[in-house]
Structure formats: structure tokens, C-alpha cells
Simulated assay, not measured.
Amino acid sequence: MRTRIAASVALAAALALGVSGCTFISPQSTLKAYDPSDGVDATVANLDVRNALLLSNNGQEASFVVSFINNGDTPIDFTVQYTGTGGKVTSHFTVDGNAVKSFGDTEEKQLVLQGINTKAGALFPVFVTYGSHTGKQLLVPVLGTSWSQYKDLAPTKSPTPKPRPTNIPGLTESPMPTASSAPSN
């Protein structure tokens, strides 16, 4: 009788372990942190970098779509660095205390990275830092603009400046000739 009870308990324990064994030895996927969008995130002290991604039409220039969040009360002067075909490029920005500075949104100014020489589907290294804090290198995904949700975020060319007339001292402008009727004799 004791053997039957012991065998029943062992069978029940084996059945319970077999049915639910994966949850005992595997970590829960819901506890793993991940970036729930196309971009990547990072934190440098009080500066959060959120949803950073690059959108490119040609693999040479890309619109840097990103939000920088200052979690502190004082303004943060930060830098964004990358290495392009012409060498290292460093840009300086400021975000006010408890504020957000975004680039690339349809209503925000674009930050166009030149000379990236990277095709869509690749990861492009961008370094963010400020003050004496250790910066973070982000491997930013480069996406094409063929998807409809990204078409309006593609890098745009800066308008070509129009030449303006220059006043040169001593030079006077002569009036333009006007059409007149032929002189009569």
C-alpha cells in the first residue's frame, strides 16, 4: 500500500513537472527589456535617447530621427558624433531642463547626417555624450524610405541660396531700356 501511495505521489510530481517544467527553468520573456519600435534607446546620466533611427534614400545621407529627453532640472549641452566619408563629424545641441528635443518628426527640424556611406538594413554607429559623463555608442538602424510611414521623414535637400545683388560703391545702376516706337521722319 505504501508503495502504491509513493508511486502515485512520484507520478503526480513527474506529471506536474513535465507539464509546467518550462516555466520553472526558463526566464519569462515579459521581463526582458527591449526597444518596442524600429529605433534604439540609450541613457547617458540624465539624458535619455529614444527611438533613434536613420532614414536614407541613397545610403549617403540620412535623416536622424530621434528624441533627447532631459530628466534633470538644468539644461544639458550634449554632442552627437559620427564618422562620415569626410572624417569625424561632431554636432552640439542643448535641451532645457525637464524637456524634450526631437529631430526628424514632420513638425521638427531635420538633422541630416552626410557621408554615411551605409545602405538600408545596416547599423550605423552614433556616439552621444555630455559633460564629463561616459557617453554611449548607439548602433542606429538605417532604414529606407519606401514604407509609407517614413516617406515624409526622408532627408530633404537644403534650399539653394539665391544670389543677392551687391551694392558696389561708385557703381550706379542704369535704367533698363524700354520699348519705344520708331522715330518718325
Score class of each variant (00 low, 15 high):
residue 182 A to F: 11
residue 24 F to R: 10
residue 26 S to W: 10
residue 141 P to D: 13
residue 59 G to S: 11
residue 107 E to Y: 08
residue 61 E to P: 02
residue 87 G to A: 07
residue 83 T to L: 08
residue 129 T to R: 02
residue 156 T to C: 03
residue 18 G to N: 07
residue 112 V to E: 03
residue 138 L to D: 08
residue 118 T to R: 13
residue 153 L to H: 04
residue 143 L to Q: 14
residue 55 L to Q: 14
residue 148 S to P: 15
residue 152 D to F: 01
residue 77 D to E: 15
residue 30 T to N: 15
residue 82 Y to W: 12
residue 20 S to C: 10
residue 97 G to T: 09
residue 94 T to I: 08
residue 11 L to I: 01
residue 79 T to W: 04
residue 137 Q to V: 07
residue 41 D to I: 07
residue 73 D to Y: 14
residue 65 V to T: 04
residue 26 S to G: 11
residue 154 A to K: 05
residue 101 K to D: 09
residue 172 T to L: 12
residue 121 G to C: 04
residue 68 F to P: 01
residue 104 G to A: 05
residue 109 K to F: 06
residue 56 S to D: 11
residue 117 N to E: 15
residue 166 T to K: 09
residue 150 Y to A: 10
residue 96 D to P: 00
residue 166 T to E: 14
residue 99 A to V: 04
residue 107 E to N: 11
residue 152 D to W: 01
residue 109 K to I: 05
residue 5 I to D: 00
residue 134 T to N: 15
residue 140 V to W: 11
residue 3 T to A: 12
residue 22 C to E: 12
residue 177 P to Q: 05
residue 50 R to P: 00
residue 179 A to E: 03
residue 171 L to C: 07
residue 112 V to Y: 00
residue 149 Q to R: 15
residue 70 N to D: 14
residue 140 V to S: 12
residue 6 A to P: 01
residue 35 D to E: 13
residue 38 D to K: 13
residue 8 S to K: 00
residue 150 Y to K: 10
residue 131 G to F: 06
residue 171 L to V: 15
residue 85 T to F: 02
residue 131 G to H: 06
residue 140 V to Y: 13
residue 28 Q to P: 03
residue 117 N to H: 11
residue 88 K to S: 05
residue 47 L to A: 01
residue 161 P to R: 06
residue 184 S to R: 11
residue 147 W to A: 08
residue 107 E to F: 07
residue 144 G to C: 02
residue 51 N to V: 11
residue 139 L to A: 15
residue 158 S to T: 08
residue 136 K to C: 00
residue 111 L to Q: 11
residue 155 P to G: 02
residue 116 I to H: 07
residue 52 A to C: 10
residue 154 A to E: 04
residue 149 Q to I: 14
residue 124 F to S: 01
residue 169 P to L: 08
residue 114 Q to N: 11
residue 70 N to S: 15
residue 102 S to F: 05
residue 172 T to H: 15
residue 38 D to F: 11
residue 69 I to G: 01
residue 169 P to D: 14
residue 114 Q to R: 07
residue 8 S to N: 00
residue 12 A to L: 09
residue 60 Q to P: 00
residue 98 N to Q: 13
residue 163 P to M: 12
